[in-house]
Write a protein that binds this DNA or RNA. Structure first.
Lengths: 177, 177
DNA sequence: GACATCATGTAAGCTGTTACATGATTCA
DNA sequence: TGAATCATGTAACAGCTTACATGATGTC
């Protein structure tokens, strides 16, 4: 089974979801296009790890539920060795050759990065507020993992933004030498 | 041309390298297996973006040098829109479902993560020390980009470790409730 | 001389991206 | 009623992983 399939099963632990919803949430820890998600879900269905219920209102919408077999797969996987995160960041490759470029070009590159992290910082802050509104203890417990991940995302965003400011400062000093 | 090819050209800006060396350094911003790197280098050679010189001592070793055409490709690429970093981290998917598991299992998961970041933190600190030993201003300028990236890596490591400590603390409190 | 590491390459199979395709629902 | 969004799917192609394969160099 591919890693994506495990990721999807994990997401279904929290609550039953449609493929469309899974696509919206997955970026908390993974990346996949809808084409990949839909095919993986169909395969998980064949394998008996999920069941499908047609949404009574939106009849083209399929809600996937984790089966017991599916939950067992998740618990087994949890205890296996964890693969390291992928890290492919072409921005950093551009930073690597930044001394080839003038101050303006370098500043543009850094600014785009800053804008990106400012944007997703706001998104995650919003999601964090939603979590903080949960009062029911059972519901709060169920969302604990999601909370831990959101916090990490926010911390990483802050670090990225701090780095951008620091790097811009270094480049300015470098220029004035 | 694939992103990997651009990455390799960027790396050759700093100094000519063999495929083997590129493989060792690439993880600062990208991931690729040697099989992928060697085939990409052969293609870049065909395209005229690099030249090859056989190392006089190690005759099976091929040193790749960036050509003017290659440098032009890099400067053009620099100014194009930067793709966002990939983020696939199955550790986070495990954290997402952490409430399914007992305290010991959760602690094991976090400890592995902590060990990983402690390990690479040491590696980057070591590389940073190497940079700090450079006295020649031209050489220092050439390594500026590398320095900026190393600093970011170290900052991210610190954040990851801080998060691990914080998350463990949350889980402990959660247990004692 | 044995073993680790250096050094390069090919190929099959799997994963991920992009493009094509269709239809329902919601809201102005 | 037109446009945006919701919702699902297939297929071709590109990129990545894993396994196989070979030989040189350095060192105990």
């Amino acid at each position: 089974m591919s890693t994506l399939s495990y990721i999807l099963l994990c997401m279904l632990v929290r609550k039953p979801c449609s493929g469309y919803e899974l696509k919206q949430y997955i970026n908390l820890f993974w990346e996949a296009h809808h084409s990949q998600i839909y095919t993986a879900l169909n395969k998980l269905h064949e394998q008996g790890y999920v069941t499908v219920k047609i949404d009574p209102v939106h009849k083209q919408k399929k809600i996937y539920h984790l089966t017991e077999a599916g939950q067992l797969v998740v618990t087994d996987w949890f205890q296996e060795e964890t693969n390291l995160p992928t890290q492919r960041d072409e921005f950093l490759a551009k930073v690597y050759v930044i001394s080839l470029f003038n101050q303006e070009q370098a500043a543009d590159l850094l600014q785009d990065r800053r804008h990106h992290y400012q944007k997703i910082q706001k998104q995650y802050q919003h999601k964090m507020q939603e979590y903080n509104l949960i009062t029911d203890p059972t519901e709060k417990q169920k969302n604990l993992g999601r909370y831990l991940i959101l916090k990490r995302r926010l911390m990483v965003c802050t670090t990225e933004l701090e780095w951008c400011a620091w790097a811009q400062d270094i480049l300015n000093r470098n220029q004035n030498q």
